[in-house]
């Protein structure tokens, strides 16, 4: 295993350009989990010390540093309750204290704890890559498949109330569906299938597939009943 220690984000993205197979290491809960024997083939670019973990008010919203731990997000009183609840979907204390919002979003797993609620709160990601900096909405980032940029921070534009839900057989099991909405913005993450962003019925575009978490029909049904009608 090779571990690279850049001293700045600019240096980090340049390293990524040089070693395209490498992975950014922030919290590391996903990257380091279950790796065995293959450790020696991995290359990590450690950005944990050069990324901000701050959570602070900024304008009408809140800016969350990419290295902010899910535990800190769950505890933060300046964030909407449903975003805090999403961070708490990681039900292990030890993992909440290690996993970062940047890592959770960058992995873009369909059962991501944070992506649906970030979309619902109209979040914007500030990205840095070898090509420079840019801002992207959460759904645009996820759909782009970008693995070269670093999520420097997440800006929550809307602090309105919302709802976040996670449907899993048990607290530590994989989720069949993670969903969130705030106002008219809805997002769904469906295990083994994909994301849907948009209005309440946006899930209907997803090709629901069967996996350990349940059948496609079950997940489609769950998506359809996740939220009560908004009157």
């Amino acid at each position: 295993m090779i571990i690279l220690h850049p001293e700045s984000l600019e240096a980090a993205v340049e390293m990524k350009r040089q070693f395209p197979q490498s992975s950014y290491l922030s919290g590391g809960t996903a990257l380091l989990s279950l790796l065995s024997g293959k450790d020696k083939d991995s290359c990590f670019i450690d950005i944990s010390k050069i990324l901000s973990a701050e959570i602070r008010k900024e304008g009408d919203g809140v800016r969350i540093g990419g290295a902010a731990k899910l535990a800190d997000i769950a505890r933060s009183e300046i964030l909407p309750e449903f975003i805090r609840k999403s961070a708490g979907f990681q039900s292990s204390l030890q993992l909440r204290e290690q996993a970062t919002i940047g890592g959770n979003v960058a992995l873009a797993r369909f059962d991501s704890y944070m992506i649906p609620s970030l979309f619902a709160s109209d979040a914007v990601l500030s990205l840095i890559s070898a090509d420079g900096t840019r801002d992207l909405q959460v759904d645009e980032y996820v759909l782009s498949g970008d693995k070269d940029s670093i999520i420097e921070s997440v800006y929550i534009r809307s602090l309105s109330d919302g709802e976040a839900k996670r449907f899993a057989r048990a607290s530590h099991a994989h989720a069949a569906l993670t969903a969130a909405h705030s106002g008219k913005r809805y997002a769904y993450g469906i295990s083994g299938s994909g994301f849907a962003f948009g209005d309440k019925d946006s899930y209907s575009t997803v090709d629901f597939s069967t996996d350990l978490t349940g059948s496609g029909d079950y997940k489609r049904y769950l998506a359809s009943v996740s939220f009560k009608e908004v009157r």
């Binding site: 039900s91 057989r169 048990a170 607290s171 530590h172 099991a173 350990l212």
Partner: peptide, 11 residues
């Protein structure tokens, strides 16, 4: 353990 789905304190 995650894939197999054991009960934890929350269960």
């Amino acid at each position: 353990f995650t894939d197999y789905c054991v009960p934890m304190i929350q269960e």
